[in-house]
Design a protein around this nucleic acid. Structure first.
Lengths: 210, 210
DNA sequence: CAAATAGTGTCTTTTAGACACTATTCG
DNA sequence: CGAATAGTGTCTAAAAGACACTATTTG
């Protein structure tokens, strides 16, 4: 059955845009800097993206692009914004749905030949205006990390409050007071009963997200 | 010049989705209830929407749909979410970009034969799962109205603090303490120097948004 | 023991809210 | 004057932050 509108036309009779997805994968480097995953495009860099295929959701397309363009397994792409300026793309009418995905550094097994992790402070001059997407992604992630512990699940299963605070400071780009951080976050966590002896100093209790 | 990809194909060689926009126009009724503009669709109701045309932005398409389906002049549609389930629409592959637009009641000159304003508390059973869009629109507008005075510019050019508070209470769906509201909002407003004599009681100074 | 880190008591500052008072109008 | 609304002083409660203290480990 083909559906027809009041003029007897089907969906195929109207021009349609191409729809792309571009994803800012954010992660925290071992040195504590917040970074974004970029794909090489000739001499330039861009966010990994692709056109959406029939029968595919946007999130699925975003994950496929990450895998195909960078070798990375993404997790849960979230929509940020649809870029829709009609003359954005010289190839024609293309809408691009920007996404954010947060992936732990330890799970980022990217193909160094085709991709790089660049600290967000050093992102400038990406192709297709992707700087703006990075900016929106960082802002969204920072909003998420303002009040609750590791909402994007970047920590491993169990962790100490100190390591959780380090993560939050990396994401937010600011230092946090240790005592206030503990008082805010501890009630939102579960204790594992475990202890982590990290070398010098009093061993720390370990927690997990609830 | 037609751009070709690495397989020598153009954008036209790939299947593309139809892209629709659906807009929740929110407004405050004279009785103080927050309401959404619905378009009649046979015996049922839905948010006004349309397919996006070539050369047109999403916001422009949303405004066109409001005008054509309800007779309303919208203002500044903002994106909420892209609904992308591949089997959403029986007519085929259709992405729908949900929008929010806030319009003052006094500017809502809608066509009563084709449209209605329904209090958001009474919205249930809209076509195409549009209940969910209304829910998202209300949530977003409430977030906006939590901390700053009339961010969607629903008030006229000058207004008293009491009338501003009434608006905020309508949008948020809760009562606010009068003294705290004043102390939060007044520093974010400019005085006009004007006075509004509203009948009984001390006349109120008028303000405008900065 | 010194150094280092975990964990916490307590004081101060800030902010939101409660409450009540004064100010100014209409009828 | 009484009723009604505008505007504000002040107290309390809650939350965030500063600071310093105790606790427990390694070397």
């Amino acid at each position: 059955m083909t559906y027809r509108d009041s003029h007897g036309r089907t969906l195929q009779d109207y021009p349609r845009p191409s729809v792309a997805v571009d994803t800012a994968v954010l992660s925290v480097l071992p040195d504590g800097r917040l970074a974004v995953l970029l794909a090489n495009d000739g001499d330039d860099a861009r966010l990994p993206g692709t056109f959406v295929h029939p029968g595919e959701t946007l999130a699925r397309a975003a994950l496929r692009a990450l895998r195909d363009k960078t070798g990375v397994d993404g997790r849960e792409p979230r929509q940020l914004h649809v870029f829709d300026a009609p003359d954005r793309d010289p190839r024609g009418w293309v809408l691009s749905v920007a996404h954010l995905d947060a992936v732990p550094y330890r799970a980022l097994d990217f193909d160094a030949g085709r991709a790089e992790l660049r600290p967000v402070d050093e992102v400038r001059g990406l192709l297709y205006g992707h700087d703006e997407i990075v900016r929106m992604a960082v802002e969204r992630l920072r909003d998420d990390y303002a009040a609750s512990p590791d909402p994007a699940q970047l920590m491993p299963g169990t962790f100490t409050l100190r390591s959780l605070q380090n993560l939050h400071e990396s994401v937010l780009g600011i230092d946090l007071p240790r005592d206030t951080f503990r008082r805010t976050m501890e009630p939102q966590l579960s204790t594992t009963g475990g202890i982590e002896r990290g070398g010098v100093g009093k061993p720390a209790r370990t927690f997990r997200t609830r």
